[in-house]
Design a protein around this nucleic acid. Sequence first.
DNA 1: ATCAAATACATGCATATGCTTGCATCTTCG
DNA 2: CGAAGATGCAAGCATATGCATGTATTTGAT
Lengths: 172, 172
Amino acid sequence: MAGRRDDQKGAGGGRCNCTALRKATRRISQLYDTALASSGLKSTQRAILAQISRSEPTTVGGLAQALVMDSGALAHTLKPLERDGLITVEVDPDDRRSRLIRLTADGRAKLAATDESWAHAQSSFEAAFGQVESDLLRQALQVLISDDFVSAFEKNLLANRQEPNDHDRSPQ
Amino acid sequence: MAGRRDDQKGAGGGRCNCTALRKATRRISQLYDTALASSGLKSTQRAILAQISRSEPTTVGGLAQALVMDSGALAHTLKPLERDGLITVEVDPDDRRSRLIRLTADGRAKLAATDESWAHAQSSFEAAFGQVESDLLRQALQVLISDDFVSAFEKNLLANRQEPNDHDRSPQ
DNA sequence: ATCAAATACATGCATATGCTTGCATCTTCG
DNA sequence: CGAAGATGCAAGCATATGCATGTATTTGAT
């Protein structure tokens, strides 16, 4: 028990679920990114291209919802992909407010080119973490992004806001 | 097997562990940020202040390791906090390469002020996701950021890189 | 004491994200 | 048809992050 300033490393340093998620995401993203490095795509970009390929053509809003991100943020993120000719963004003739997003031939090729690297990262993850554990983790994460979870969270948050204590809400 | 294009939404849209983590992190960060909004701190900033308070004084490198982030990135992220007078960053007299990071009185007060909001978010999360499930999730995420996991992942990645197939590595 | 190697950061560059605001485009209702 | 309200984005602003490179220091070996 000598020199101990960094002991919280063992203690996990706090038990905030949000922080725990962010830490894990940083680490895993880095691992996947390293695996994808040679392909020239980041894990985030691959995720976007993959999502587009699964629901092509799609819109900014639809994509944002599928990826659980802000549409404004997504609009920014799409720029590099469009600039690099991996996707096309055009006004939807049926609703000129919307944009139709599609993969270009290059985009499709790029995505295909990353398949193998991605599969390696994914299988490495599952070999290290366990197949069953990986499935359970994804299921848990899936719950977190479900509408039900969000509703329940917000409901609890509101309830708590009223009475920090615990002795029921005054009927008043 | 009717209407098929957007079904992946129900299917989770791909099974990339990295993407699943990112999605969940975005959502949960948003929920925690909303809960912390009134305090003026983002969940990321609170996480940093909290970590500093747990190992004060600390260094850029130590903090980066504890938060599982790049020290360069952390240096950037500390700027706003320093600018707002929540932390101080000074050269370590014992090793002038290092910086000693500390909370200011304001920083400590700000952190304390967010305690209640954070607790509400945290308890709302656990009420919605389940106490046991929450603990298990944090444990799982804890494993993902462990050195053992990273080592195992990289070992598998390297092995895979050699032979995409599965028929063992030649004893050479 | 010196110089090469290792450290600990700081910076610049690029992407990632969220929020707010403003614009263009539907929709709806009278 | 015309105006109010709802939608779908784009752009600006600010923080979050990672990586590569440059700089200041400390260490280690000679």
